[in-house]
Write a protein that binds this DNA or RNA. Structure first.
Length: 607
DNA sequence: ATGAGTGGCCAC
DNA sequence: AAACGTGGCCACTCAT
């Protein structure tokens, strides 16, 4: 395929508008239209459409939005066929909807999603993809404004290179669809359907947003920063060093007689929390304390204050296609890694500042009634990855350990492994068992397992021997996955595993094929969460979901819907049919996320 | 001034 | 036989 002979056209007269509509009428009803937009920028809240482009494999039309948007509206009214976008659900369709142009979800296909599913190890970008599958020259496009005084915001729509660059995009999109569609249909239709549908739901989550207690964030920020400044002054005064300059701090501590043994990945002297905690020197303690508070203040509090909108809502981006396991990631801010340690008040605070939008700030905790004033609902799967390990292994003993309704899974497992029915929650053997489970899931070897469990390698070896004897299915699952991957390496040139749920390909880096075990488990968990989010959406909870966290979904629900929503969550997320052990989910609620210390912390802050 | 790389660290 | 996985984002350093 090449781009020879393509036609690029600009709609800037009535005649050309009619040309476009005539061209449209000649499209076959079963054909598709490529669709793309050029905008003033990337913000879906504040930026505007400059150019709308449609096309097929040979002809691309650029429609200047300000003067000729009526033409695009007319096209949307007339066209009954499919639409092909590249990141449409997350971008172009959002801009169009805001402009009052609604393209029905069921008519949309998307080449970014197709690429992510068909070739998860490759770049998903339109130009990069087109360079691979359409025309090598297409990969080098995208610098039309270089050497001009224009920006994406103020370039005239009629500037030749600009609109031509734009008009080419629907052509590329259309061609990519032609390339990908047969592959998707043959290889991974279910994964594609799942991913595409998920994008429409997560885009709504982004718009709905997360409510933040901005006032509390301001107070905490001031306090944290004041502390950091004092530490910096102290370090300067006493040691003439910046507490953030690790190597300089190391120098000083070395001069004071401390020796360092831990190295970083590249061989430098490590100065992480672990190392600092082991040094009895006032500088070490100050460096550590400042590092923690500085991180919290700048990553979260500063972000909350600067980026919440006028309704105190954050709108983080949810990327459904970032991780090779199909996990979703979240950015600006990354709300999937808000500190959770209850032992650290300062850290816990950051999570507690995510609050229910329907509760006014002055409403005292003891007068708050979730079913009256509204509530956050948090619904998370219990040990979903361990359940998937049991499912994949097929070991009856491990499967059984999930079927005692009144017994913790890891206690049940520990009792089997240690042959001791007296093991309870606090028994250290439960913790070792738990760590071993995650070691299996992550693909850890003996050494790393012993390390994480804090036991001698001999003891770890004995433990794993018993584990493997009791649950031979885990090793069988591991071996089968790897053997299959190596077979595929020979035939397809690529080591990969396939999702049992959607037939998705999980691709491993070379020499890290063992990671496929983890990809299957983590990826299946991710796919299950996506499936469940779609079910929740279909069950009517779409308007209130705002955040996925790998095995959990968060909702912000008005009071009159709280009970219904909680019941729906229970009903949808608990599932006895999907895999060979029951899937269990717990619903919790609160005025704040985290919520354990709540108002107490606000008082601490005020002090 | 900007960007890439590193080290560090939070989550699941 | 042996192999801990996936992300995002900060401060800092050194390069262009």
């Amino acid at each position: 395929m090449s781009l020879d002979g393509v036609q690029l056209k600009l709609v800037d007269s009535i005649d050309q508008a009619y040309d476009l509509l005539r061209w449209l009428d000649e499209r076959r009803p079963l054909d598709a239209l490529g669709l793309d937009l050029e905008t003033t920028g990337l913000s879906r809240q504040t930026d505007r459409i400059k150019l709308a482009q449609i096309g097929d494999g040979m002809t691309g039309w650029a429609i200047p939005w300000h003067h000729w948007n009526g033409v695009l509206r007319d096209v949307v009214k007339r066209w009954k066929g499919r639409w092909i976008t590249h990141n449409g659900p997350g971008f172009d369709l959002v801009f169009l909807r805001r402009a009052g142009v609604d393209i029905p979800q069921h008519l949309v296909d998307d080449t970014m999603v197709r690429s992510a599913v068909n070739e998860p190890h490759m770049s998903k970008g339109l130009k990069q993809q087109a360079g691979r599958h359409v025309d090598a020259a297409a990969g080098g496009l995208g610098e039309v404004l270089k050497g001009t005084a224009w920006t994406w915001e103020n370039v005239p729509e009629t500037f030749g290179p600009y609109w031509q660059y734009g008009a080419l995009d629907p052509i590329l999109t259309y061609r990519l669809e032609e390339y990908h569609r047969p592959i998707t249909e043959r290889e991974s239709q279910r994964a594609y359907d799942l991913e595409l549908a998920t994008q429409f739901v997560t885009e709504r989550m982004e718009r709905y947003g997360a409510h933040v207690d901005r006032e509390a964030a301001r107070v905490a920020y001031e306090k944290f920063i004041r502390f950091c400044l004092e530490v910096e002054k102290w370090c300067q005064l006493n040691y003439s060093v910046k507490p953030g300059s690790n190597q300089a701090v190391v120098q000083i501590l070395q001069n004071a007689g401390h020796t360092f043994s831990k190295a970083t990945a590249t061989g430098a002297v490590a100065l992480d929390a672990d190392v600092l905690e082991g040094i009895s020197h006032p500088l070490a303690q100050q460096v550590l304390a400042r590092r923690q508070l500085q991180k919290l203040a700048s990553t979260y509090l500063r972000f909350y204050i600067d980026n919440a909108d006028t309704d105190d809502l954050l709108h983080p981006s949810i990327n459904t296609l970032a991780a090779r396991t199909s996990r979703m990631s979240v950015s600006e801010p990354n709300m999937q890694n808000l500190p959770r340690q209850v032992t650290n008040d300062a850290a816990d605070l950051v999570r507690n500042m995510i609050t229910c939008r329907y509760v006014t700030r002055d409403l005292a905790e003891d007068t708050w009634r979730p079913t009256v004033h509204g509530s956050l609902l948090m619904c998370d799967f219990a040990q979903i990855e361990m359940r998937l390990l049991a499912h994949f292994s097929g070991d009856q003993a491990m499967i059984d350990a999930f079927s005692y309704s009144d017994l913790d899974f890891f206690i049940a497992l520990a009792r089997q492994i240690y042959q001791d029915e007296t093991i309870t929650k606090k028994d250290p053997r439960r913790q070792i068992t738990k760590i071993s489970g995650y070691a299996k899931i992550y693909g850890a070897g003996l050494r790393k397992f012993a390390q994480s469990a804090g036991i001698p390698e001999a003891q770890a070896r004995e433990f794993l021997r018993r584990f493997d004897a009791l649950y031979p299915g885990v090793q069988r699952f591991t071996n089968d996955t790897l053997n299959e991957a190596f077979e595929r390496q020979k035939t397809d040139g690529l080591a990969y595993a396939r999702s049992p749920f959607t037939n998705r390909r999980f691709v491993a880096d070379s020499r890290k094929e063992f990671a496929l075990i983890n990809y299957l488990i983590q990826g299946s968990a991710a796919e299950i969460l996506k499936m469940k989010i779609l079910e929740l959406d279909a069950a009517g909870l779409g308007p209130w979901m705002f955040l996925p966290v790998h095995d959990e979904v968060l909702l912000d629900v008005p009071g009159e819907h709280v009970l219904d929503a909680a019941e729906t969550l229970q009903h949808v997320m608990n599932d006895d049919q999907l895999i060979s052990v029951p899937l269990r989910a717990e619903v919790s609620y609160g005025r704040r996320w985290g919520s354990k210390l709540d108002w107490v912390q606000e008082k601490v802050l005020a002090a």
